[in-house]
Amino acid sequence: MIELGEAFLHPLHRHVINITYRDHRPDAVEANGGTPPMYHFSAFVAQIDNDWIAVTAGHVFGDLKKAIARGAMPRDWAIDDSTVNPKPHPGTDMKVLYNIAFDPDKDVIYFDDDVKGMDYAAFKLSPLAVEAMQREGIRPIPEAIWNQTDLEDFPYWLLVGTPSEFVESANGRALAKRHATLHVVQRSGPAPGFDPTPYQRLYAEVDFDSTDHDGPFNLVGMSGGPIFGIKPSFEKIEDYRLIGVQSAQQWERVKPTGNVIAFCAAQPFIKALKQAWLNRQV
């Protein structure tokens, strides 16, 4: 068993962000003591040519669209960089890197229920957001990492994200946030309980003993987090690959060996984004 400490994991954590928003629906604000409740989801940053893009799970925005239809009013979108800077900014109670002008209807490309088995979302980050993220230590996954064909040489998989139950909040303000990095063991096929999909997903068993957090814990909130592959030398992470985007889970607190995640291969989606944007520029 290796120790997944911060010094070891920093090369991976520097790519990971949280995206946050507040729900300004009046009854939600009233139920939260007069403050719009804040929601968080996991994501990561990749580079396509000169653009930085945020990538997450498509069902995040599919669920948000359904919530808006029921009256939700998401505003105050922001990027949280606490994977690399856990201490709050001076004069604040949480780590919000940059407030972003964001319209999920116009700015996001995503696949969810309309294409079963493809659970992806992405949007470009503005130059001002990129500048702020660079200053704080966030780095995009370069094409040399996400667009390789030697993934079998990186068999030790790590899922990074922020479980919702690890976000402590009061009156709509995040008081503390802890992230999780988990070893996940590749399966040859899905576990019982996963619906078959026309587009094949990947599956892995979750090894809760690989983290110092008390486990097993609910993985809700880790959707959209990246799965990285590293070589099993474990001295330091000098080379790694982006494997996938976390999509779904079967979770059973009392049976940790039964915890299985389903995720989507990252490379096909990012390559398709690159080609689509290239075609638009021609």
Rank of each mutant, 00 (worst) to 15 (best):
residue 10 H to P: 07
residue 62 G to R: 03
residue 152 E to Y: 03
residue 187 R to D: 04
residue 62 G to Y: 08
residue 51 D to C: 12
residue 38 M to P: 05
residue 37 P to I: 06
residue 170 A to R: 11
residue 26 P to L: 10
residue 242 L to S: 09
residue 137 G to D: 01
residue 28 A to Y: 00
residue 216 P to D: 04
residue 244 G to I: 10
residue 211 T to V: 12
residue 144 A to F: 00
residue 165 E to D: 09
residue 20 T to N: 03
residue 173 R to W: 07
residue 68 I to K: 14
residue 95 K to N: 13
residue 88 P to A: 12
residue 174 A to Q: 08
residue 73 M to L: 10
residue 117 G to I: 12
residue 242 L to M: 00
residue 122 A to V: 08
residue 77 W to T: 00
residue 187 R to L: 15
residue 145 I to M: 06
residue 165 E to H: 13
residue 106 K to F: 02
residue 72 A to V: 12
residue 273 L to K: 00
residue 154 F to V: 11
residue 104 P to F: 15
residue 111 F to M: 11
residue 236 K to L: 06
residue 162 T to P: 02
residue 266 A to K: 03
residue 21 Y to I: 09
residue 182 L to Q: 03
residue 111 F to H: 14
residue 214 D to F: 10
residue 281 Q to I: 13
residue 210 S to H: 10
residue 277 W to P: 05
residue 118 M to R: 13
residue 75 R to M: 09
residue 101 A to D: 14
residue 146 W to G: 07
residue 166 F to E: 07
residue 73 M to P: 04
residue 32 N to F: 08
residue 37 P to Q: 02
residue 96 V to I: 15
residue 112 D to I: 05
residue 148 Q to V: 15
residue 280 R to N: 11
residue 22 R to V: 01
residue 79 I to T: 02
residue 226 P to N: 08
residue 141 I to C: 05
residue 109 I to N: 04
residue 252 E to I: 14
residue 72 A to E: 11
residue 177 K to D: 02
residue 282 V to G: 07
residue 162 T to Q: 09
residue 197 T to Q: 10
residue 79 I to M: 05
residue 105 D to H: 08
residue 232 P to V: 07
residue 81 D to N: 12
residue 79 I to F: 04
residue 253 R to Y: 01
residue 221 G to C: 08
residue 113 D to S: 13
residue 53 I to G: 06
residue 28 A to W: 00
residue 46 A to K: 07
residue 227 I to T: 07
residue 210 S to L: 12
residue 277 W to Y: 11
residue 190 P to W: 01
residue 232 P to R: 02
residue 157 W to M: 12
residue 108 V to W: 00
residue 205 E to K: 14
residue 63 D to P: 02
residue 20 T to C: 09
residue 57 A to W: 01
residue 47 Q to I: 07
residue 116 K to F: 09
residue 89 H to K: 13
